[in-house]
């Protein structure tokens, strides 16, 4: 697989392991009277980690690998470091922002995640094409 696919897929696995550990903790605390504790205050981050950090990042890694190519190139590959950087910086900011209850960290973090999605779409759009085009 290409280098950027490997980077996206490996990073997505990190989010899968961390985000699901968080989820397991959340589930276990349903059987206690401590549902207002730390894991629940960060429940939003469990959702972001699993949907954007794991699932979306994994799909982008596979998409970069598998979408049709232009003869020998995968198109605007220079955008991929931007996608990876924006997504992961955004998720990190949203984690810290959620932990310290700071909207001024969390909101920019989520905006960076949205920007990452836009940049990936910009990269992938021309590669979604009929054979030979």
């Amino acid at each position: 697989m290409p280098r950027w696919s490997a980077i996206f897929i490996a990073t997505s696995f990190v989010y899968l392991v961390l985000g699901s550990a968080w989820g397991a903790w959340l589930l276990a605390t349903k059987g206690t009277t401590h549902m207002a504790g730390l894991p629940w205050s960060l429940r939003a981050w469990h959702v972001h980690a699993m949907l954007m950090g794991w699932l979306t990042q994994f799909i982008w890694g596979i998409g970069f690998w598998a979408f049709p190519r232009f003869r020998t190139s995968r198109g605007s590959v220079y955008l991929l470091p931007w996608v990876w950087g924006l997504l992961n910086l955004g998720l990190l900011l949203s984690l810290v922002g959620t932990a310290v209850r700071s909207l001024s960290l969390r909101f920019p973090g989520l905006v960076l995640v949205a920007l990452a999605a836009a940049v990936f779409a910009w990269h992938a759009w021309p590669r979604i094409k009929p054979p030979g085009a």
């Binding site: 697989m1 490997a6 397991a24 589930l27 059987g31």
Partner: peptide
């Protein structure tokens, strides 16, 4: 049910960890 919830969380996480470990071994740059 407290025990079952704890078991559920741990079992799902352990299963996922095993699959991720095996798949991560196969991430290879060509």
């Amino acid at each position: 049910s407290r025990g079952l919830l704890l078991f559920s969380g741990l079992a799902q996480w352990a299963g996922l960890l095993a699959a991720v470990f095996n798949l991560a071994l196969r991430i290879k740059v060509r």
